[in-house]
Amino acid sequence: MSDLISPDFVPKSAFQLPRGSQLLFIGPPGVVKTTLALRYLADRIKANEPAVFATTLWSPGQIRQTLSRISEKNVASQLQIADGVSCVTAQHSSEPYSFQNLYDLNTISLLLLQAIADLKNGHLCLDNLTTLMTYSAPHSVIKFLQVLCARVKDRGVTGIYLIEEGVHAKNVVTTLRFSVDGVVEIFDEEEKDQLKHKIRLLHLRGAQVDTRWLIFDETKPLQWAEE
């Protein structure tokens, strides 16, 4: 198995992701951050690599539904979900890993590490840090992410962490940005009355990246914006 990951839907020239990279996806609400992360996980599941999706915002059912819409049917059943929603709705979770609450960051960190403990060449996505900051002070979440990233990386698992743009103080986001290896920015732009989603990999430690904008369309591979 190669140590560089190049997902099928991303142009080869854009980047190759070193295994164990920790990435921050940043963008305003409603700009397909979750869909992009799911697309990446679906791509990895198809390459027979295990993936864990920790959700604090969408229920496991909704995640699987979105995943089966953008990918093949059997992919959704192979995604492991760490459920951070049932604790909010005061329900029993049918997922193997479920959060007790959203404010005890130590327990969440341990739970996520437990979920990825046996994953060889695995992938972890946490959606999202903004919800955790709804329940805890920003500096606790910063510390949480620093430790989590280091441990996830140590286990050779690739990590993706989602955060909302325009919610947190600038210095909080900047601190989070240097806790990770790379940052993916997602924006939308008006084009002929419709909104278009644009993506770019801003930087990535230990890899060469093409920082030009890519256009995201749910059904198509990513395409360079000016072509």
């Binding site: 305003p28 609400p29 969408w58 903004t130 919800t131 709804t134 909302e164 743009e165 325009g166 919610v167």
Partner: peptide, 12 residues
């Protein structure tokens, strides 16, 4: 604006 964005991020 941060509060509005935050609340928007908590819904679908």
């Amino acid at each position: 604006p941060e509060l509005i964005t935050n609340l928007r991020s908590l819904v679908q």
